[in-house]
Design a protein around this nucleic acid. Structure first.
Lengths: 331, 331
DNA sequence: CTGTTAGCGCATTCAT
DNA sequence: ATGAATGCGCTAACAG
């Protein structure tokens, strides 16, 4: 039962020094004679001493941890971003406290609870489009915040341009001689959904294509939603079928392909299909898609956050990461 | 710049009470007159007071957080388990500190660092098969630990029986008149890989089937690995082809299907295929597979962990969760 | 019921 | 270079 109750006083006593000295060797202070340092180090090992982080945190007034806020919708995208976040955090030995905050509930209250708890030194929020009125409180709190996959003029933000990505996809389709293009969107209430729609419209305009509302669908970003939307489209008279469809997610694209397959249709010959995300399976299903630098997004977000925490950032950092079109076989 | 420097002393003074009383209302002690409680509450609101968790933690000698340790291989399985973990934790308002610990590095040192840091009250480890020699140190530390997706006689563990799952899959195949069955395994060095292989062998023996080593492959759990293994199998003389293949993961099954498709083969008519995991896409690709109760696994793991932390567990809790075969179209 | 005191374990002046 | 004292913000006896 010799529980680890050993603290600085114990090692100080045994090493015959003051607790101040022990604290100094703990923090690698250079103002410690080599001999004493060595002696203290020995005693620490002997007693199997470990500093109590809780006490350190309180004394230092910092938590050595950051909060990572993700929407409940945890899919491939977030996992990849999380990997980047985790790696970046581990490099600095900072704890990652994961919070799931749904979009519908009173997010700001939850966030402010986190802020006031003092358990984190900063916050990285993924895909959280917070309104201007909401963010005032957060801004006032002074806690470092970085938005990943979201732009805000008020916070450091690393983001992707959904509009550009969608535009890129449709441009590609048009350049491959498609002029009847369907767009199967994700949640139209999300910023992403809206921006991707805007990108589609922009490309249409640019190429003088008219929008056929019967070919513009929205739902959610799941495979099932893509499947249903495509089914509806394929119920239209054959003459109204699109020659290509752009899905707002690879999962939806997979649903689309399935709906086509059930009708004996193949991509790209019957109808071309292009997705968004470049999930691992897109590769195996050979889906042409838009790739997003997810890992980099997470990694950079943390780099910036840590800089902000250290006070090394004098102005708001804004950075757009580049998307890439991955050409495969479905379009 | 009226930063949130307000502490119990401030509210105590303004409310004209002692800090003890403030602390009591903070902790919902019943020994506080309604009037004083009300007064204190008002002052707290007025001053926008929030307790400093760091200080609370130190004073209480508990972190109000648990560490969740996951292998670097973060895929669908872990995400689902994580959801269960997160939900269970949120119900109790406990923080989730996420640690990624690779299987190769000196895991135990990292884990013991976490233990000694005092920043968590307990540990939930996913898919961490720790050896007996290793776990001694962890056991001695006395910190509550629960293993999810892993069995150990020394720790609380919620686990799945891979052997049974694999056996179930092969049994199913045999019952559908297959007697030349290939097994495409994941990492043979992992406990999962070994157990699934054992399950396959058990079913083979049960049915008096002879093992053809040319039809037993291993690699990793990714789609690409399944693809390659299946390609190798399809390079065998046609007479040696299996009539069915059991893949140790849905991702591998998808790779298998792709390899087949490239040869113009279809499931289940040419070769039946069965996977493992029941990822979302297995549904859309209509892959017959073995379902694992991932969410429940995570949720229950935390329930048990929290009980252990509260000291409500007198003996080691061991629970096997049931697997289910999801019959779809590839087998 | 409530105020006071003493830790929790460590960081950090301030002298020496 | 180092020891002693003070504080971080809160909890938990201990008196009253």
């Amino acid at each position: 039962m010799s529980k680890n109750k050993v603290n600085i006083y114990d090692v100080a006593e045994k090493a015959d020094v003051g607790i101040g000295t022990v604290s100094r060797v703990l923090n690698n202070s250079d103002k410690v004679k080599d001999n004493t340092r060595k002696k203290v180090l020995e005693v620490m090992k002997e007693l199997n001493y470990r500093p109590n982080k809780l006490a350190q945190n309180l004394a230092r007034q910092k938590a050595n941890a950051v909060a990572v806020i993700v929407p409940s919708f945890i899919d491939h995208f977030f996992v990849e971003v999380l990997k980047g976040i985790q790696d970046a955090l581990e490099e600095e030995n900072i704890d990652l406290i994961l919070h799931k905050i749904d979009l519908n509930e009173n997010r700001m209250k939850k966030i402010m609870d986190i802020v006031h708890s003092r358990k984190v030194d900063g916050i990285a929020a993924l895909t959280m489009d917070i309104s201007d009125t909401e963010n005032q409180e957060l801004k006032d709190s002074g806690i470092p915040v970085v938005l990943a996959d979201e732009f805000s003029a008020d916070f450091h933000s690393i983001y992707l341009d959904d509009l550009k990505g969608a535009e890129m996809a449709v441009d590609y389709l048009v350049n491959h001689n498609h002029n009847k293009i369907a767009f199967i969107n994700g949640d139209i209430n999300s910023l992403h959904g809206q921006k991707r729609l805007a990108g589609v419209k922009k490309s249409f305009q640019k190429h003088n294509l008219k929008i056929n509302t019967a070919l513009i669908k929205d739902g959610d970003f799941y495979a099932e939603d893509g499947y249903q939307s495509m089914q509806e489209i394929l119920e239209l008279p054959r003459t109204e079928w699109p020659s290509a469809v752009f899905a707002a997610s690879d999962n939806q694209a997979i649903g689309v392909l399935q709906a086509m397959e059930e009708k004996g249709l193949k991509a790209p010959d019957d109808i071309a299909v292009i997705g968004y995300d470049n999930i691992e399976l897109a590769k195996y299903l050979k889906i042409t898609t838009v790739w997003q630098p997810m890992y980099q997004l997470g990694h950079l977000a943390i780099e910036i956050l840590l800089k902000a925490i250290k006070g090394e950032l004098n102005e708001i950092y804004q950075k757009e990461l580049e998307l890439k079109l991955v050409k495969r076989e479905t379009a």
